[in-house]
Design a binder for these strands. Structure first.
Length: 645
RNA sequence: GCUGGCGUAGCUCAACGGCAGAGCAGCUGAUUUGUAAUCAGCAGGUUGUAGGUUCAAGUCCUAUCGCCAGCUCCA
C-alpha cells in the first residue's frame, strides 16, 4: 500500500499509510487523549475515519467549542439510548446541542417525571461506563427509511423523507442506532461529566399546531470540574435573579390581583424615576421634546394605525358610550396626532417626541415573568419625524446617544442586528427595500458591525436591535430603532418642502433602555443589586455607635437631606457590627459611622459597600465625595463603589 | 395559549393520610455596643381558592387562580 501525504494544522507534513485511521494518527502523535474528533480538509469527521488520500487534518480538542459541541451531541445520543432502553415504545425525534448543553425531543404518551429523569441519568452513567464503541454507518436513504419504519420510528422516517441527499449516515452504539450526520465521540466512555437539567413540552418542528413532544434538557462538559463550574454559575445567576433582589431590597412586588404587573414600592419607584430623570437630562441635550398622550383612544385610531388588525389579541379594550376604546399598547399613533395638529414645514423637522407614557399589552400567561415581560410598563419611547434626507443624521445622533447610555451602565459589548421584512407587513416591498438600505447604510457609516435577521422586522418597518452583555455575559436586547414609512402614510402626515410641495415625512421609532421595567430587571442582575450611587434608593445610611451620638447624627442627617441626598439614619440600640451588616446586605453604597470620636471632631467615618473604611472626614468633604462619584459614574468612569464590591 | 413542576408564617424550608413545626425577619425586655449577626421572652397559620374522597386531608382526586422552567408568541 502506498503512502499518502497528511498536512497537520501546524503545517507539518507526514507520510502515512493510506487507510490509516485518524485515531491511530493521533495515537502515534501522543495526543489521542485530548482529541475528540478531527477536521479532514475542513470537514469534521469521526476519529475512526480512515484517511484515503492526501489531505489536511485539523484536530478538534475535547475542550474546544467544536469539541464540546460534539461531546454534547453524543451525550444527547447517550440519553436517547438510555430513554429507549428504559421506556420501550418511546420514539426519538431530534436531539441538537444548545449553548452549554443539549436536548432531545421524544414522542411518548406520558411526560417524564423527575424520578424518571434520575433513572435515565443513572442508566446513562452505566452506558458510559460500559464504553460502547460509536460506529458510523452509511446507507442509501430508501434503506434507512425502511429500517426506521421497521423500528416504528415515525419521526425519523419523516425527517429522512425530507433529506435531499441520497446517502445518509447512521450511528450505532451497542444495540442502539440513530440517524445522524455526526461526527461523534469514538466511544461512550468519553462521556461522563453531564447532568440532566429539566424536562419540558415542545412542539414537533416548533409549531404549536403540531403534537407536543417531551423534551429533556441536559448539560455536558469535558471534565467534572467544568461541569461543577457551570452549575456554580447557574447558582450565581439564581442569586442575582432580579425577582429575588427586588424582594430582598424591597423594590417591587407582584400580586395575584394584578398578574404580570409589577408594583413598585417606594425604593423601587426611586430607581424607576431616576432612570427616567436620566433619560430626560439626555433628551434636553439631544433635542427631544417630551409629550403626554392619552391612555385610551377610540378604536378608530388603532384601526388606522394597523394595530387593531395585527395586534388586537394583545390589546385591552373597553366600551364607553356605545363605542369601543383601546388602551394604548404603543405611543406612536398618539404622536402622529400631535404631528398632524398643524401644517408642518421642512423647517420644523426633525421633530423628536419623547413619551414615558404607560403602555398595556395583554401578554399570554405563559410568556410573562418578573420584570422582563410584563403587561403594564413604560418605555423611554420617542418618535422622530424627519425628511428622508435627515435619516442618516438622526441615526448618527442616535448611535452616539446609545453609546453614552450603555457606557453609563457599564454594559460591555454591544451586538447589532438588522431585522428585515417579516411575513406580515404594511406598505410596499419597494418602500421596505428603501428603508432597509437606509438603516444598513447608517450602520456602515458609523463603522458598526452588524448581523442581518431576515424576516424579524416589525410589521411597519425594518429595525435595528442592540444586544448588550451583562456581568454574567448573558445577552439582552435593549435598544431598538425602527424605521417606519407606513405610519405617516396611514395618518396622511405631510410637510411642505422648500419647493412648496407636500411631502411624506419618515418616522423613526426608538427606545434606548426599552421598557423601564425590563431594563431595571436587567440592570439589577447586571450589578447584583448593588446599584451605582446615582440610582441607589438609599445612598448613605448613618449608623450611630451608641445613642449618645443621636443629636449629632440627626444634625448630619438633616445636612445631607438638605443637600438632596437619599439618606437614612439608623440610631437603633444595636451593636455597630449588626447595623453595618444590615446596611451591607441592603446594598447601600455608604454606611456612615458616627461615634464619640466623630462627634468630638465633627466628622463622619464612611464605609464603602465593599467593606473599605475611609478615614474620618467632615460632612462637607463627604458630600463632595458623593458628588464626585455620581458625576464620575454618569460619565462612565470606573466605579469606586461597584457591583463587585 | 400549550406541556410539566410548585403553592405551608413576611422570607427560606420541615411535617408516613393521624395534635401544623424550625431558622431568619417582626414585637417586648435586658444589654450602650467601633466597621458583616448580643441575649432572653412573645407573637405569628382557614396549609393559594372552591369542591370531592375518607372516621380523619397540608398530604389523595377534580376544578380554578398564581408562580417557576420550557414551547409558541413578542407591534
Amino acid at each position: 500500500m502506498e503512502d499518502i501525504q497528511v498536512t497537520l494544522s501546524g503545517g507539518k507534513v507526514l507520510q502515512v499509510l493510506r487507510g490509516l485511521r485518524i485515531q491511530e494518527l493521533a495515537f502515534s502523535l501522543g495526543i489521542n487523549s485530548r482529541i475528540i474528533a478531527a477536521k479532514v480538509d475542513g470537514v469534521a469527521v469521526d476519529l475512526d475515519r480512515p484517511l484515503g488520500q492526501d489531505c489536511t487534518v485539523d484536530w478538534i480538542p475535547m475542550d474546544s467549542p467544536e469539541g464540546l459541541d460534539i461531546l454534547r451531541h453524543s451525550t444527547a445520543h447517550l440519553m436517547a439510548q438510555a430513554v429507549q432502553g428504559l421506556f420501550p415504545g418511546t420514539q426519538v425525534t431530534i436531539g441538537p446541542t444548545i449553548e452549554d448543553g443539549f436536548y432531545y425531543d421524544f414522542k411518548r404518551v406520558t411526560p417524564f417525571t423527575p424520578e424518571e429523569l434520575e433513572r435515565i441519568e443513572s442508566r446513562m452513567h452505566e452506558l458510559a461506563a460500559s464504553n460502547l464503541r460509536i460506529k458510523r454507518e452509511e446507507m442509501p436513504r430508501p434503506r434507512a427509511i425502511e429500517l426506521f419504519r421497521a423500528m416504528g420510528e415515525d419521526y425519523k422516517v419523516a425527517i429522512l423523507e425530507e433529506i435531499p441527499e441520497e446517502k445518509v449516515s447512521l450511528y450505532r452504539q451497542g444495540d442502539w442506532v440513530d440517524l445522524c450526520r455526526g461526527p461523534h465521540v469514538p466511544a461512550t466512555g468519553v462521556i461522563g461529566a453531564f447532568k440532566l437539567t429539566g424536562v419540558a413540552g415542545a412542539y414537533w418542528r416548533g409549531d404549536e399546531r403540531n403534537e407536543m413532544l417531551q423534551r429533556i434538557y441536559g448539560t455536558a462538559w469535558h471534565t467534572e470540574e467544568a461541569l461543577r463550574e457551570h452549575l456554580r454559575l447557574l447558582e450565581e445567576a439564581k442569586k442575582r435573579d432580579h425577582r429575588r433582589i427586588g424582594r430582598e431590597l424591597d423594590l417591587f412586588s407582584f400580586h395575584p390581583l394584578a398578574p404580570a404587573s409589577p408594583i413598585f414600592h417606594p425604593k423601587g419607584a426611586i430607581v424607576y424615576n431616576e432612570l427616567i430623570a436620566y433619560m430626560r437630562r439626555l433628551y434636553r441635550r439631544y433635542g427631544y421634546q417630551e409629550v403626554i398622550t392619552p391612555q385610551i383612544f377610540d378604536a378608530e385610531l388603532w384601526r388606522r394605525s394597523g394595530h387593531y388588525d395585527h395586534f388586537r389579541e394583545n390589546m385591552y379594550f373597553t366600551r364607553v358610550d356605545e363605542k369601543e376604546f383601546g388602551v394604548k399598547p404603543m405611543n406612536c399613533p398618539g404622536h402622529t396626532l400631535i404631528y398632524a395638529s398643524k401644517r408642518r414645514s421642512y423647517r420644523d423637522l426633525p421633530l423628536r417626541y419623547a413619551d414615558f407614557g404607560r403602555l398595556h399589552r395583554y401578554e399570554k400567561s405563559g410568556v410573562t415573568g418578573g420584570l422582563t415581560r410584563v403587561r403594564s410598563f413604560s418605555q423611554d419611547d420617542a418618535h422622530i419625524f424627519c425628511t428622508p434626507e435627515q435619516i442618516e443624521g438622526e441615526m448618527t445622533a442616535l448611535l452616539r446617544m446609545l453609546r453614552e447610555v450603555y457606557q453609563a451602565f457599564r454594559f460591555g459589548q454591544i451586538q447589532v442586528k438588522l431585522s428585515t421584512r417579516p411575513e406580515h407587513f404594511l406598505g410596499s416591498e419597494e418602500v421596505w427595500a428603501r428603508a432597509e438600505e437606509a438603516l444598513a447604510e447608517s450602520l456602515r457609516k458609523e463603522g458598526l458591525e452588524y448581523a442581518v435577521n431576515p424576516g424579524e422586522g416589525a410589521f411597519y418597518g425594518p429595525k435595528i436591535d442592540f444586544v448588550v452583555s451583562d456581568a454574567l455575559r448573558r445577552g439582552w436586547q435593549l435598544a431598538t430603532i425602527q424605521l417606519d414609512f407606513s405610519m405617516p402614510e396611514r395618518f396622511d402626515l405631510t410637510y411642505i418642502s422648500p419647493a412648496g410641495s407636500e411631502e411624506r415625512p419618515v418616522m423613526i421609532h426608538r427606545a434606548i433602555l426599552g421598557s423601564i421595567e425590563r431594563f431595571m430587571g436587567i440592570l439589577l442582575e447586571h450589578c447584583a443589586g448593588a446599584l451605582p450611587i446615582w440610582l441607589a434608593p438609599v445612598q448613605a445610611r448613618l449608623v450611630t455607635v451608641t445613642d449618645q451620638q443621636k443629636n449629632y447624627a440627626e444634625k448630619v442627617f438633616e445636612e445631607l437631606l438638605a443637600g438632596g441626598w437619599r439618606v437614612e439614619l439608623d440610631g437603633r440600640n444595636e451593636k455597630l457590627g449588626y447595623k453595618i451588616r444590615e446596611a451591607q446586605m441592603a446594598k447601600i453604597p455608604y454606611a456612615v459611622v458616627i461615634g464619640d470620636r466623630e462627634m468630638k471632631d465633627q466628622t463622619v467615618s464612611p464605609r464603602r459597600r465593599g467593606g473599605k473604611t475611609l478615614k474620618p472626614m467632615s460632612v462637607k468633604e463627604f458630600v463632595e465625595l458623593l458628588g464626585q462619584e455620581v458625576s464620575g459614574e454618569l460619565r462612565g468612569e470606573d466605579l469606586t463603589v461597584g457591583a463587585g464590591d
